[in-house]
Design a protein around this nucleic acid. Structure first.
Lengths: 116, 116
DNA sequence: CCCCATCGTTTCACTACCGTATCATACCCC
DNA sequence: GGGGTATGATACGGTAGTGAAACGATGGGG
């Protein structure tokens, strides 16, 4: 079953969720950072800097810096791949999972209050 | 009728839409800028710098700069309020309406392909 | 073994955002 | 009319993002 909503509802949903996140004054991720985080948590591992850069169509430093920023607040973690020590494996964290869980709940809640 | 979706679907929707926007390499708005733009187009006018700042819970310079940036690419326009020349009335533009229309369509399209 | 490809990181110069504080302008009411 | 207030813009110092290029470290094939 696909999710049905009309364009105006879609925009209202984005508006309300965005408004809540901005007003919350908590974690403030850039659009790229959020997409990276979602990719790590929604797509099957392993995730590497190179792989993420290719998937997003951005340069590697963008990924490295985003991981720096998000690692700083414990949303993701990194470790060297023991099999090929050139690679870095990006891993999920409890805090990152919690953040996205709350984020998903927020969207669902706002979606439930949309008027037709 | 409210829109029903589950948290995992919500996150996947945000992921796919965000991924599309990042890869598109076109207009790249910050989260605050997007919220401001959506507010201008979804909520009843008139919109002022002061009003937007209060609504978003940010300082006035944030709004001024966001309007500068979005005005630069013609997503919004500004003019002085003739009734009270201290106020600035923020106005919609054709380009801004088109951008949000396409954005809404993108969300709807991606929502339609979500698996349960 | 050695050269070269690949990986993630770092450096560089630049741009843009943030909050605080200050500014010029405009209104209003005594 | 003049002091106080409200508006939006701007200056400032700091932070953090960007792409391009160069960098060490690691792995692998000839």
């Amino acid at each position: 079953m696909s999710v049905r909503l009309r364009p105006i509802q879609a925009l209202r949903l984005w508006h309300e969720v965005g408004l809540t996140m901005v007003r919350r004054h908590g974690i403030d991720l850039t659009s790229r950072q959020l997409v990276i985080l979602l990719t790590i948590y929604l797509e099957p591992p392993p995730h590497t800097v190179r792989g993420l850069a290719t998937k997003l169509g951005v340069t590697k430093p963008v990924i490295t810096r985003a991981l720096d920023a998000m690692g700083e607040i414990d949303l993701v973690s990194r470790r060297r791949d023991p099999a090929d020590r050139r690679n870095v494996i990006i891993q999920r964290t409890v805090r990152g999972a919690l953040f996205l869980e709350e984020f998903g709940d927020l969207i669902v809640e706002r979606a439930g209050t949309l008027v037709p």
